[in-house]
Write a protein that binds this DNA or RNA. Sequence first.
DNA 1: CGGTGATCATCG
DNA 2: CGATGATCACCG
Length: 225
Amino acid sequence: MQPPTNPPASLDDLMQRVVQIAGFTLGELASLADLKAPANLRRHKGWVGQLIELWLGAEAGSQQTQDFAQLGVELKTLPVDESGSPLETTYVCYAHLTGIAGLNWQQSNVRNKLSRVLWIPVQGSRDIPPALRVVGNGFLWQPNNDEEQALRSDWEEIMDFISLGQVEKLTARQGEVMQIRPKAADGRALTDAIGPDGSIIQTRPRGFYLKKSFTKAILQRQFNE
DNA sequence: CGGTGATCATCG
DNA sequence: CGATGATCACCG
């Protein structure tokens, strides 16, 4: 077994790849690809996601688009604890802080990314070395009406703050299922945003994240119903 | 710098 | 002890 060299031609093709890697450890998948698993993820935070991308044939470096654009699928690995609950929030996308006048939910990057997600649960407890973590059963998810409304409501509230120049008043506590948080290389990174008086200010770049309670509910809907 | 992949680590 | 705010690595 070895990683595919081409993107999946169809949804069935993609899901076959998903089934193939389920049950393997990250260390096994790494050595089959001539890679080495890091001892911990402190300096390799995106390693798990990139390994899974490799095994599913996702196009690398794709920007502001779904991982499998032609299939309309976004890939997300989800670190879970021993009881199957998410250990981390889930990054969705970068949040634009200027040039957002007239942008609505239907055309938003968030909605596009989340319209169809391939979730791959992976053991994520820190007491398990990355190489020994097992890949779970991946599944396709599309937001149901309730989920879409919740996402939309959070998105609109957050975007209202941003367009009204209140980005600095936004905190991760805002939002029921989705939040906005800093997303940058370090605290020195700055980007343009709308200030309180309507002029351009500099602020820390932000990204949208799904709260754990939301992804936990997605997993429960998939595996406990 | 803006974007991808995320997890880390401090603080309430 | 969990969530928020900060940070790590890589790419064009």
